[in-house]
Design a binder for these strands. Structure first.
Lengths: 177, 177
DNA sequence: CTTCCTGTACCGTCTGGACGGTCTTGTCAA
DNA sequence: TTGACAAGACCGTCCAGACGGTACAGGAAG
């Protein structure tokens, strides 16, 4: 299953994300992705035999990346608790002006079931956090606030100023400590 | 501009929301909406000359309803502060198992610009909250956590149990006080 | 020879929307 | 009271375009 011509899949995935962001989530057509990736439609359909597989690939890549980032940040700050690591990592993600994952809307429009891996991933993460965080109240507040931050980033909604965002994050880290 | 056959517009709007929820946001076609509303396609296009107008109608109705609900809850608990009212109202909205506004994904897929009224509305609401809430830190945490709750409801993601949700809300109300 | 692609031609389906016709309702003059 | 008439509300049909997907002939590289 691994290892076609090394980077073709990655290029296509990146192209799909770009198209979704720039042309709008509803305009994620195979032709657009193919031309953006510098690949013919036949080539695209060789790597992803169907549009559903493409979406699935996007979701899996997203989850894989997040997991890696979390583990990396974890081993970096070995003394910090998991919740704090998660807060910092998410805040970093949301720093980028680019919504970074607006292809999610394409996936949902295509079929809401594409979100299922993400949902179960989040459930597992939350369970893990519950196991490692002593105070449930603090966890709930921090987790939900981060969820809110991610949501605002995803919807490209900039109601918070930079200062406010920083104040929020530092407050959450205080609570998580 | 007002007053067609009294309730035809409302019926169509409700039908559109139903179709989006049941058939998936990507399957919100005019035919589906028309048949669901018990109206011919011609009749639908008479009320909403274009699909964009339909989406616009959904957004406006959503905002109008929310505003009314907020004002109503406000006059009911005249002594409570705005943030607490907002928290309670949002928590109530998120109680429903039905995502209630999953047509939003349809609108985004159609054209992300449909979200602009919602964005400016939220910005205004946040400004209002800032004006009426003494402690910025509390406001940020509460507002973002509620945003997170709304996001989870919208994505139909049930990582929180009922008890956890209630604990969260009571904690937020404590902070907001 | 196999793998990985390119390029093109094509098909079936769906969708937004334009269009002309139809039924209903209100208005007003005689 | 009645009949004429116009505007409003809605129906059914049709169409051009876009899209996902298939099929197939080739070509370059290892």
């Amino acid at each position: 299953m691994r290892a076609q011509r090394p980077n073709s899949r990655e290029k296509i995935l990146a192209a799909a994300a770009d198209v979704a962001r720039e042309s709008g989530p509803g305009s994620l057509s195979l032709d657009a992705v193919a031309s953006r990736a510098g690949v013919s439609k036949g080539g695209l359909l060789y790597n992803f035999p169907t549009k559903a597989k493409l979406m699935q690939g996007l979701v899996e890549g997203y989850l894989r990346e997040f997991e890696h980032a979390l583990e990396a940040a974890r081993t970096n700050d070995k003394d910090e608790n998991l919740l704090a690591v998660y807060i910092r990592l998410s805040a970093n993600d949301c720093e980028e002006k680019q919504p970074s994952a607006s292809w999610i809307f394409s996936a949902i429009a295509e079929d809401p079931d594409f979100m299922m891996p993400i949902k179960t991933f989040k459930r597992q993460l939350f369970e893990r956090l519950k196991g490692e965080t002593p105070d449930l109240k603090s966890l709930l507040i921090c987790y939900l606030a981060i969820e809110g931050l991610r949501s605002m980033n995803l919807f490209d909604s900039d109601v918070l100023s930079k200062d406010e965002r920083e104040l929020l994050v530092s407050s959450l880290l205080e609570i998580a400590k």
